[in-house]
Amino acid sequence: MLEVNNINVYYGPIHAIKDISFEVKTGETVALIGANGAGKSTVLKTMSGLLRSKTGSIVFDGKDIKKAEAHKIVRSGLAQVPEGRRIFLQMTVLENLEMGAYTQKAVSAEELENIFTLFPRLKERRKQIAGTLSGGEQQMLAMGRALMSKPKLLMLDEPSMGLAPLFVEQIFEIIKSLNRAGTTILLVEQNAGKALEIADRAYVLETGEITLSGTGKELSQSDEVRKAYLGG
């Protein structure tokens, strides 16, 4: 579904992503793990068209989207839940969800109901200003908002960041159930243990390069990964 070949991304003189390639097949959950500053978010931003790769190709659903504008990429079925949620804090919960459905002709009542079933909290608070939600609720809103565009591939950037353990469990359960329901997932996480648990395959990113890859199980048993990311 997503095939990334030899991309290089720069922030001014800084070479942030060094010639990486990876792929996500239809129906998979793929995790991208690595330390803070390894370039994980940069990869997702490049997929979404917020940043540009100087080389290579990004093929999504059979089309090269490397040079496509960000708003067109969403239309082709690639949605992102950005790091730090980035919900519209001054708009209501419902308006945030409506913005998620911006690419659709109209807000589908059915999709909205699906999301309210997935996140009952959002239904209770749909008229509330999003800035008044708790961190976990904001994460749910960010996910619900991305789902409103009916993505084929959902990319999640650090969905567990800053959340209480109970919420983290819940978020990962929801990601699993989304995948079961047919959404392909690309997950970026610092919480490597959790990510490898639910991932079919995973890549390890270190200072802009992919150093390891394998199935979730293989990586969670590899010595290198255990030492560096799973605390021994």
Binding site: L50, A70, H71, P82, R86, I87, F88, M91, E98, S149
Partner: peptide, 24 residues
């Protein structure tokens, strides 16, 4: 209106608005 809401979204967070598919 949809356009009005998009205006508010862009004014609050331009990158996030792009990720919604809004033509900035």
């Amino acid at each position: 209106t949809k356009m009005g809401k998009a205006m508010r979204a862009v004014s609050e967070d331009m990158d996030s608005a792009k990720l919604m598919g809004i033509n900035i």
